[in-house]
Design a protein around this nucleic acid. Structure first.
Lengths: 210, 210
DNA sequence: TCGGGATTCACCCACCCGGGTGAGACCGAT
DNA sequence: ATCGGTCTCACCCGGGTGGGTGAATCCCGA
């Protein structure tokens, strides 16, 4: 029985860098790479890797959305998310999308070895420095039940990220402008922001839009 | 006489990935790494690497600013900029800041070998796919003088991405609200957008803010 | 069956935003 | 020394935005 790790990143350099790192982890027999979230979804059923290392920031299907779908279809899939910056929002988003753990892109070889080894044994994990960051914040407010955007709210947020006015969004979705404003107001509350620019920024940081 | 290449990226994984890549290039005897633009500036005078590979996106001193300073102090320094996306603006910006060339992060091993070899021989270079992209646009309008954001405009855009109002941004930068609005209006024009939400979205897509 | 969430729409209102215009100061380059 | 670019500030104005409130429908789960 071979232990396989699948690496997903849109940049070849990062893929190969990770491959070098992961190949050196004891107990890992094989390392495959994919260049997009779509590719992971397509190949997972056939290859059944024991662990997926996925970058958050990818064109097309983002890392968060890809993870959500993968875990949805394959509940036993283990995904470790790779984040460039230790943004608490991204971390919370990663976990809420089904990731078992998350690593910063500047982890040392030892940290990565430990993380991969733990994940392969089925344990959830967090990057130590991120755990400290989260501990600083008493509660992961981002994971509160009411904080998840509904379908409509996400559509409105997407329209905002495309620079559309409430009126335009309404026409696109066959809604009145007032309705759009209602959705906007609610999604502002859920995200804890005051205006659309802030909402768009947070949407990007959390991978809700791209 | 040894040929040395200095790699600069804030992510260890990318650094090591690049090291693997570059170490395999014929004619390269030594590969060093730095984790920040500041580190490159500090070490360059002593180590005098024959070539610097620098990521655009870095905390603190960005790749562009680091390159500008490096080339300013050491006109014979050769810098190849690494860009995540083939954004024409970033490419134009890289060249205008003194980079000899630029590579996409998903270059193949062969392309990177060729690029490094050429750069070491003193030739300027462009990543093939980017050359095509530039050729596709009949004129490099992005490189037009008015299209690049100024320091102030970038500061204002950053404030916007943090959800600040013009008034707040003004207080942060010790400017009047009217002045902020003027910068905002000009950066809207340069980016070709109509409002701050659109500007923030474009800023994220182009990597101007994070 | 009742409550709660999602969705839809409406009205009011204060305020910030975006656009136009003009203008003075500074600086580097020609 | 003149020109262009940047940075600074001011005024005006119209319209979109954000917040408050209320209410109807639908559906799902308790």
């Amino acid at each position: 029985m071979t232990t396989t790790v699948l690496i997903c990143d849109d940049h070849r350099i990062v893929r190969e860098g990770l491959r070098q790192f992961v190949a050196g982890v004891p107990g890992v027999d094989r390392v495959d790479t994919a260049a997009s979230g779509e590719e992971v979804l397509a190949r997972y059923p056939h290859e059944k890797p024991d662990l997926v290392l996925m970058d958050v920031r990818m064109p097309g299907l983002g890392g968060l959305e890809a993870t959500r779908r993968l875990v949805n279809e394959h509940p036993d899939a283990k995904v470790i998310m790779l984040t460039a910056a230790d943004d608490r929002d991204q971390v919370a988003a990663a976990v809420s999308h089904g990731a078992r753990g998350y690593l910063l892109k500047d982890v040392s070889h030892e940290e990565l070895c430990a993380a991969v080894a733990h994940a392969l044994q089925g344990a959830d994990l967090v990057e130590p420095s991120l755990r400290r960051a989260l501990a600083g914040q008493q509660a992961v407010r981002s994971a509160a039940p009411g904080t998840q955007l509904t379908e409509r709210e996400l559509q409105v947020l997407t329209g905002m990220s495309q620079g559309k006015s409430n009126n335009q969004i309404g026409k696109d979705l066959y809604l009145s402008e007032d309705t759009v404003k209602t959705h906007a107001r609610r999604l502002f509350r859920k995200l804890g922001v005051n205006d659309r620019a802030q909402a768009v920024a947070l949407g990007f940081r959390r991978g809700l839009v791209s």
